[in-house]
């Protein structure tokens, strides 16, 4: 579950005021809104990369507002994947586990299982140069899933992909969410993605989340 209570944040001319929203456990939520309305900022506040000026962020009923990003157990996939420039695909996926000082065998086991699941097993020894947009997103997704996060935050994971890859990626995202029984918050401005993926749709306007529709 992800819950924001009266979250506010302001810098220069840009402000989020009293943002409230709740995403039930295990649901796939899609957050929509115009470009520059603060969707990415909301994701960054949830995963701890920005400190809100006020309000509370709850993840799985735990108040994480003052926790460090790494303590929140949140998987974050930014817009372009933001892969690590000098690491191989295997090192990227195993990075979170390595930081947590997991054993080598466990890292290898998790990396190969996730790579198999996400269809990047044949890329494990490659560096990120020359990977396609879809492959990059899959690697970034694997990297986020490796730490077994409580929630997954996706910032426009599909918008940069070619038309014919989008359906594949959407199917993959839905499959991953069901398999890992994970709460997902997916930011996009595509209503097609919302229709195909969302259990609930959140809309962002004028610095606050004003509408919430539950589907199904």
């Amino acid at each position: 579950m992800i819950k924001l209570e009266n979250v506010s944040w302001k810098v220069d001319q840009f402000a989020l005021a009293g943002v409230n929203c709740s995403i039930p456990e295990g649901k796939y939520a899609v957050l929509m809104g115009a470009t520059g309305c603060g969707k990415t900022t909301v994701l960054e506040i949830i995963c701890g990369l920005r400190q809100p000026d006020g309000g509370t962020v709850l993840v799985a009923d735990v108040d994480v507002t003052r926790m460090l990003p790494g303590e929140r157990q949140i998987g974050y996939v930014p817009q372009d994947g933001a892969l690590f420039p000098t690491m191989t695909v295997a090192e990227q996926i195993g990075f979170g586990l390595q930081v947590r000082r997991e054993g080598k065998e466990r890292i290898v086991e998790v990396v190969s299982r996730l790579a198999e699941d996400l269809g990047v097993a044949h890329l494990l020894e490659r560096t990120i140069h020359g990977l396609s947009g879809g492959e990059r997103q899959r690697v970034a997704l694997g990297r986020a899933l490796a730490i077994e996060p409580r929630v997954l935050l996706l910032d426009e994971p599909i918008s940069a992909l070619d038309e014919d890859m989008r359906d594949d990626m959407m199917a993959l995202l839905k499959r991953v969410q069901v398999k890992h029984a994970i709460t997902v918050l997916h930011v996009t401005h595509s209503s097609q993605e919302a229709e195909q993926l969302a259990d609930c749709v959140l809309r962002m306007e004028d610095g606050s989340i004003i509408n919430r529709e539950l589907q199904g």
């Binding site: 995963c47 790494g70 929140r72 974050y76 930081v99």
Partner: peptide, 23 residues
């Protein structure tokens, strides 16, 4: 060098200094 990979490294458990050092 984009700051984004550092941000991701922090969500995966690195401190800011750790992200600078490793990524």
């Amino acid at each position: 060098l984009s700051q984004r990979p550092e941000d991701v490294a922090m969500t995966l458990g690195c401190s800011r200094g750790g992200a600078l050092w490793r990524v």
